[in-house]
């Protein structure tokens, strides 16, 4: 079975009369090692889709299989465990924990994921060096630039070697030069570690980096093309 499989997934928000159908039946399969982008205008449902894939939310109808198990039937704690072990997140506004240094932010993520307290310092340093922050790892987020913060976020997502990394508009708050750098790092990690990446964007420049392009409009996938 593929790493990720969606079957006739619908997501409806709201209660009573006011209902918004954010996703209207999505079928999708993503395998290990893919580097895909979900592309579409704002309000098209791409964030909702990413949330469902990331086990942050459950579908209203249909099934989401992550690593073979369906998220719909899981308790909150089960979902938390699933995320902890399998998924890394990267957000548009970084969402680093401001009271922890770059190093601690990354190590914290690793500690959450690893059940027994195996030594984590070495691994953390390694990852931070890979994203090019070797000399700034003891700064707090407040002392880092936007691009640096996002690199910490990438390191944080990568450190526990998850099967899947989800990035929601990772470059929206960055200038184009920095954005390029971030995407190059993500691409390199995808190749070197064979980690599956899915990121959403509305920026055509960013789109170019993806090897699979999923376009979403009005809650439906309207285009799915692969390229090299």
């Amino acid at each position: 079975m593929a790493l990720l499989q969606l079957e006739r997934v619908k997501k409806i928000y709201g209660k009573g009369d006011i209902k918004v159908e954010a996703l209207r039946g999505i079928d999708l399969e993503i395998g290990t090692g893919e580097f895909s982008t979900v592309f579409g205008p704002s309000g098209s449902g791409k964030t909702t889709l990413l949330n469902l894939i990331g086990a942050l939310d459950k579908p209203t109808e249909g099934k989401v299989y992550l690593n073979g198990s369906s998220t719909g039937e899981m308790t909150k704690n089960k979902l938390a465990m699933l995320r902890r072990e399998n998924i890394g997140f990267i957000f548009q506004d970084f969402n680093l924990i401001p009271v922890l240094t770059a190093f601690e932010n990354v190590e914290f993520a690793l500690k959450i994921a690893s059940r027994n307290g195996q030594p984590s310092g070495e691994r953390t340093r390694e990852i931070l060096e890979m994203v090019g922050l070797g000399d700034m790892m003891h700064r707090r987020p407040g002392e880092l630039s936007g691009g640096q913060k996002q690199r910490v976020a990438i390191a944080r997502a990568l450190v526990k070697a998850p099967k899947l990394i989800l990035a929601d508009e990772p470059t929206a708050n960055l200038d184009s030069e920095t954005s390029k750098g971030i995407l190059e790092i993500m691409g390199r990690m995808n190749k070197e570690l064979n980690t599956t990446f899915i990121f959403s964007t509305h920026d055509p420049m960013v789109m170019e980096y993806a090897r699979r392009l999923l376009e979403i409009r009005d809650g439906k996938i309207t285009r799915d093309e692969r390229r090299e």
Binding site: G54, L56, A80, R83, I87, F89, L96, I97, F108, I112
Partner: peptide
């Protein structure tokens, strides 16, 4: 609120 959200996304329980 965001920090808490992020921590939950990272797999922390309530």
């Amino acid at each position: 609120v965001k920090e808490i959200g992020m921590m939950k996304a990272m797999g922390l329980k309530e």
